[in-house]
Structures are given as structure tokens and as C-alpha cells.
């Protein structure tokens, strides 16, 4: 049992915290019963139990095409962001303070600046380059958006691979390339994997940039959901939401386990 250190304040905070957690989780939990509705209207409690909205989703060509596109875009973005972000994180560790601060400022900016501004700015350039509505354009934009997450994860993994280990390897006869592949990469692989998973997740769910860059050709799953919520609230959206919640939870848990494992290694 936790020690109650602050008397009634502590009791009060526990009550608020419990309610706040309900407030956080309730909307997500709602998706499960709503998705089982047999009828065409969202109802709680559902009028019966049916999985037909799930099978409708799986049979709907447009939805499935968007889902596949989202997977492709997210995989591409994660790959690009992971490779670029991992090299960058290693480079940051070697750079002089000036280069490090300048590079961090640039590389982390997509994390802090409003996505809508980024979306508008990129849209302006893409429109000129005819990249709106292309999967490649989405991949590149999402990669930029998720590089900070790779950077953060690999950077914290690098704490478990101090410079001294590279130097030890070099003193034992390993050149820079051998030291990178035989020492650095094995030690930070969990951080790389966690960064890749987070990039995938973010890209897969990303909707603001997708809204601008999807055009009519490359409609991602979130973009299609956004349109769906605008125009027609059906139980199918709840069914898709359930699938998204499950996938995200599984991936996020995996990534967190990797991060924990990486911490334990050191």
C-alpha cells in the first residue's frame, strides 16, 4: 500500500485521479460495445451483438485500400525516419556542442511546431511540385514528422553505449565501421526498434498532414475516418476504432517493453 503522506489532500487527489482516468479511458472503452451494434445507428447499450460491421469493413474496397495505403505509408515513413534518425542520433553524440544544438533545434522542430502550419507549408510546396495525392509525398512528410521520435529513442539508448565502448573497440583494432556495426548498433537496437514502432504508429494515425496531402488519390485510413465522422457516424467507425485501439496498444506496449529492456541492459 502506498503511504498516505499528505492526509486528506492525498485522499482527495486519489479520488480526482481515479475520475480523471475514467475520463481518459471511458471514450475508448465505449468503442467496444458500440462496434457490436447490429443496426445502422450507434446505440448504447447495443441492440444486440454482431460482428457484421467488422466484416463489412473488411469487405469494403475503399476502406481496405485506405488501410493498405496507410500501412505502406507508415512503413515507408518509419523506415526513412529510422535510418535517418539513427544516423543523426549517433552523429549528434559525436558533434561539437554548437553543431549539436543547432542540429537538435532543426531536427526536433517538427515535434514542437503546430502540425497544421507544417501541413499548410508542405502543401504549398507539394502543390507546386505536383506531389499532392502521392504516397511518396506522404511518406516523406510523415518521416520528417517522426524523426524526432526516433531521435529521442535512439538518443536515450545511446546512453547505454558510451563513447568509451567505441574507443575500447578501436584500441582493440576495430575501425570506425566495425565499431559501428559490432558495438554501437547491437547496443542500441532496442532503441532503434522502439523509435521505428513509434514512427509507424504516428504516421499510421496522422490526420492533419494527410488531410492536406492526401488529395483524391492517396486517401489514408485516418483521412477516410475523418470524412466518415464528418458525414456519417456509423457503427463501422466504431469497429475500425476498436481495431486501431488494439493495434496501437499492442505496438505501444511492445515499444515500451523495448525501451524498458534497453534500460535494463545498461
Amino acid at each position: 500500500m502506498p503511504r498516505v503522506e499528505h492526509g486528506w489532500v492525498s485522499v482527495f487527489f486519489h479520488v480526482i485521479a481515479a475520475s480523471a482516468l475514467m475520463f481518459l479511458l471511458l471514450p475508448i472503452a465505449m468503442m467496444f460495445p458500440l462496434s457490436l451494434e447490429p443496426g445502422t445507428m450507434l446505440r448504447f447499450p447495443p441492440q444486440g451483438v454482431s460482428l457484421h460491421w467488422y466484416s463489412d469493413y473488411l469487405k469494403d474496397g475503399a476502406w481496405i485500400a485506405s488501410t493498405i495505403l496507410s500501412f505502406q505509408v507508415a512503413l515507408g515513413a518509419a523506415l526513412l525516419a529510422t535510418v535517418a534518425g539513427t544516423f543523426a542520433a549517433v552523429g549528434l553524440a559525436q558533434a561539437s556542442p554548437f553543431v549539436r544544438n543547432a542540429a537538435l533545434l532543426i531536427l526536433m522542430s517538427p515535434l514542437f511546431l503546430p502540425t497544421v502550419v507544417a501541413a499548410v507549408a508542405i502543401y504549398g510546396v507539394y502543390a507546386a511540385l505536383r506531389l499532392v495525392g502521392t504516397p511518396l509525398g506522404l511518406v516523406a512528410a510523415h518521416a520528417v514528422l517522426t524523426i524526432p521520435f526516433v531521435l529521442l529513442n535512439v538518443q536515450s539508448a545511446l546512453a547505454g553505449a558510451p563513447r568509451a565502448l567505441d574507443e575500447a573497440a578501436m584500441s582493440l583494432g576495430a575501425g570506425p565501421v566495425a565499431a559501428f556495426w559490432q558495438i554501437k548498433v547491437p547496443l542500441i537496437r532496442r532503441g532503434i526498434a522502439a523509435g521505428a514502432i513509434f514512427s509507424f504508429l504516428i504516421s499510421f494515425d496522422e490526420v492533419v498532414i494527410a488531410k492536406f496531402l492526401s488529395g483524391t488519390q492517396a486517401v489514408t485510413l485516418p483521412k477516410r475516418m475523418l470524412d466518415g465522422i464528418f458525414y456519417e457516424m456509423t457503427p463501422m467507425l466504431a469497429a475500425i476504432s476498436v481495431l486501431l485501439v488494439l493495434m496501437n496498444a499492442a505496438l505501444a506496449l511492445l515499444a515500451l517493453a523495448l525501451v524498458r529492456g534497453a534500460r535494463k541492459d545498461t
Partner: peptide, 13 residues
């Protein structure tokens, strides 16, 4: 040159 580092720097993996 054989180097013994301050905190050993053994490869943990």
C-alpha cells in the same frame, strides 16, 4: 596499444 579504461568499458552484449 592495450588500453584498460577507467570503468573497464567491457562490451555488455
Amino acid at each position: 596499444i592495450g588500453v584498460v579504461f577507467q570503468r573497464y568499458a567491457l562490451f555488455p552484449h
